[in-house]
Each structure stands twice: as structure tokens, then as C-alpha cells.
Amino acid sequence: MTNINFVVNGIRHQLAVKDNETLLDVLRDRLGLTGAKKGCDIGECGTCTVVVDGEPILSCITLAVEMEGKRITTIEGLAQNGELHPLQKAFHEHGAVQCGFCTPGMIMSGKALLDKNPKPTEQEVRRAISGNSCRCTGYDKPVKAILAAAEAEIQ
């Protein structure tokens, strides 16, 4: 067991974690943040994507012990004071959600993209979510939602 200090959605945590415990398991099982999903658990489907110090990372293949001193944002940390984040609003309003299992990961990939590149091209959006699998939507509406969120944030 190793003690780690990290911040999740603005809240400081100190936890003793097992050396083989993944960030995803810590978020889901220890902190009760089940928004990040366990689709494949081997870093291939993108449903576990969270943002760590500005980078989108696959929390299922990231060890919790590496999180010392890091700031983590999960899907639960996006809405502020009851207001949906522009990406959440856009996914909802553009019909980018179907079964919803990939949605948290895809929104977090979109969030990391827009934080670095507020005005992405469609191709940049597609590349940013190319690690997020989705069987329901064919990606068209999620791509449009991310572009619309970018537009909304600029205005």
C-alpha cells in the first residue's frame, strides 16, 4: 500500500492504494465516481477516459500510485453550480447520446481537446475521439456536438 495525495474534481483526497490498483478502480470503487466506465479494462475502448493535469488519460491502464500530486477531472466534475458544461449541454442537445456508455469518456476526450485547442477542425475532433469506441452513434452527432460546444465557448 502506498499513500497518495491527489485532487479529484476540486476535492483533495488522501488514500492508501494497492500498488496494482488502477485509477479507474479507485475512482469507481473507493470514491464512488462511477461515471468513468470499465468497457475493456485494457486501454482500448476509451470509456474510462478522465483528464489528468489537462491530458486525457485511460484510467483503466493508469496506476493509482502515479497520481501523487495530480489534479483529476472526471465527468462528475464538469457541471458547475448545477450548470451543465457546454460539452454536456451540446451532447444532450445534439442527440449525441444513445446508450450513453461511451458518453462520459467521449465528453472527457472532447474536454481535453477544447482546453488545448478551443477552435478545432472536424478532423481534429475526429482524431481526438478516435480512441473512444461507440457502437450506437456512428460518431457523427458526437463530432457535431464537440464542434458546437467549441463554438458556444468562444461566444
Binding site: 465516481l33 465527468i75 444532450h92
Partner: peptide
């Protein structure tokens, strides 16, 4: 927009594994 959209975009929708 769908009636189940907001729980799904906020991570609150509960799937079996949750």
C-alpha cells in the same frame, strides 16, 4: 433531446456494473 440525456452526460446514469 432525449429524456435520459442529462443523467447520461453527467455520469449519473447507473448501469449494472455501477
Amino acid at each position: 433531446p432525449r429524456v435520459d440525456g442529462i443523467p447520461k452526460v453527467t455520469g449519473k446514469a447507473q448501469y449494472a456494473a455501477d
